[in-house]
Simulated scan of single mutants.
Amino acid sequence: MLHLELEPVTVGTSGLGKRPGADLALATAILSSTFHQADTSNNYADGESERLLGEAIRGIGGLPEERVVFSKGDQDPVTGAFTGDRMRRSFEESTERLGLETLPLYHLHDPYTISVTDAMAPGGAVDALIRLREQGRIGAIGIAAGRRELVEEYVRTDVFDAVLTHNRYTVVDRSAERILDLATERGMTVFNAAPFGAGILAGDNFRGRTYGYSEPSAEFLAHVDRFRALCAEWGVEPATAALHFSLRDPRIHSTVVGVNSTERLAELERHVQASVDVEFWAALDALGTPPAPPTD
């Protein structure tokens, strides 16, 4: 368990670094917003997300005591190596970019190039994270990945303090149900990322008919349409309903929502503050079990 009192919403920063000139202002806005938690990664925009957050932190005179930044350790961008040495270098790169000596949470991120056995081996990536935690450089270690069965396997090792699942538990997708249960049984901190399914549930931020960056079935899209029609019937914005679906689950400690502009940051504040009639959830349940999503 992460020894930190978490807020319900964490701002995701995977979009930072893709708009030269505009993203520093967004990074500064995130650090000045009503949201006190930001989530980044060593490999987001080839390190630009961390660099911009670090520049913004220096620009406001240091990270305020009430604010925290979480990051993730990634494979070598050239060789794909995910060794213990690489994990230590990843951490040093992250802290150098951010200008922070310690981090409250550092995840093993998308370990797709190695087996769980290799990751857990003495001197491996997870061992490196454990040693950094023992040294006080990291407050807690987590596993953050998309592939559901892989995440479940890591959770079952009983080594991690936290887990981050994304695009697997939304208002139209319950495939991460087992991850949430396994983590809760172990007293882990749970982050649920991408409650908008990478855009399809985001109302005015609707980006097309993909879900979790994959092409869904006609059956899945029909269910999404029924959800959107239900929202229209109840006068609830789809993004508000999608966010509050995650916020109301007691197994989830914080919901990670990515923002790619100051306008989206303001929208997020509005969605958080909005209220959803309790009877709406009963109407949502009446839609039935969502069909299989296009993710694993």
Rank of each mutant, 00 (worst) to 15 (best):
E96L: 15
V116D: 10
R137I: 06
P293L: 06
F196W: 08
D158A: 09
D39S: 07
A274K: 00
S261C: 06
E219W: 09
P8F: 03
P77E: 10
R251P: 12
S71R: 02
G123L: 01
N42G: 13
A140K: 01
D204I: 15
L16D: 07
A45N: 11
T10M: 09
R251H: 13
R209T: 15
R58K: 12
D204F: 11
D181T: 14
F82K: 11
S275D: 09
G99H: 05
Y112F: 04
E65H: 07
V276S: 07
P20C: 06
D76S: 06
S14D: 13
T13F: 02
A56H: 07
V11N: 02
G12S: 06
V159H: 03
V257R: 01
G47N: 12
V163R: 03
R186F: 00
A232I: 11
A232W: 14
T295S: 08
P293T: 09
A176D: 06
D181W: 14
A25H: 02
D74Y: 12
Q273D: 13
G139Y: 01
G203I: 02
G288N: 11
D127L: 01
D204S: 15
L265A: 01
R131L: 13
A222Q: 03
F91E: 01
A119G: 02
R131I: 08
T83H: 06
G73Q: 10
E263I: 07
A232P: 10
S261F: 01
L100K: 00
F220M: 06
I252V: 15
G136H: 05
V151W: 09
E263F: 03
H244A: 08
A222M: 06
T165N: 12
G208V: 07
L26Y: 01
P64R: 04
F70H: 05
R89V: 14
V256E: 07
D249Q: 02
E219P: 08
A56Y: 02
S41D: 05
A45E: 03
G59E: 02
V151S: 10
T117H: 15
A162S: 08
T210H: 13
R133A: 10
